[in-house]
Amino acid sequence: MPFARAQVARARWRRSAVLTGTLYLMPAALLTGVFIYWPLVASLVLSFHEWNLVSPTWTPVGWQNYIELFASRPFWLAVVNTGKAAAALTLLAVLIPMALAAMVLRVSPQIRNLYRVVLFSPSVISMAIACAVWLWIYHPLYGVLNTVLRLVGIEGPRWLSSGDWAIWGIINVTVWKSLGYNFVLFIAGLLMIPSEMQEAARVDGATEWQAFRHVTFPLLAPTTLFVFLTTFILAPQNLFVPTQILTHGGPNEASNNLGYLVYQLGFEYFRAGYASAAAMVTFLLFLGLTALQFYLAERRIHYES
């Protein structure tokens, strides 16, 4: 191809790209603006007011909602629980699907498909229904979980009504529900790694585990990071439904978390301003933490490549 023609094509692309590119952004940008950022701004303004959704006026209260929030026990319990949940989720809902995906790819292709369907299946059930099912599994007297524990000589806890265990009951359902999708992402990630590299390692005398640890795992890093981030970001939202259905944040706030707290303040107490303040804090907290992770991750990937 003559050099000049290529130049012309590139220049034309660049000239038009600014306009067309902005055009491509528009559908998403407009919808985001109207349906996400406008409510966010309204919510920010509302967080400095008191409003019960029905009264015609918003009463300005300055920073009062934020002051009340930072002084309230439920808020700090919710922060701690959300932290616990985010940590447990990012650990369990990343490592388990990774291990499962690595194992599934070792078995013969015919059975592999079966595993893939079975392991994905929790993702297709609605969270509300999943919780209704887990309610039976968790039953302290004759639920299957404690029945099995009793077989091995352990008296299981009251998963949903004990202050020490309720948050773990919630986390467990959430992990279970996130496994399937993360599993599929790992399968995708693993399939993108050329199999020759792993075989080469094995020819060099590495054990299965060593091959995974030193060859597969580093090559899987982008997928892992991605799964890690999305699991983390979605944690507060994914905890919401199980909390609402299984414990209402109880007993005595023991399983409350930020996603549910916002709902509780807004829809159980009907304090829209106060709920908005809690929502703003949640948003900023997760925005900050995610930005930090992005920053660290970008640096790391930079090093590696």
């Binding site: 985001t32 409510p39 829209a272 929502a279």
Partner: peptide
């Protein structure tokens, strides 16, 4: 900046957008 504009929406609790929408 555009990308950040979109990605940040993931962190917005849906309870915020529900009522105005």
């Amino acid at each position: 900046v555009w990308f950040a504009f979109f990605v940040a929406t993931m962190m917005i609790p849906f309870q915020v957008t529900m009522i105005p929408n």
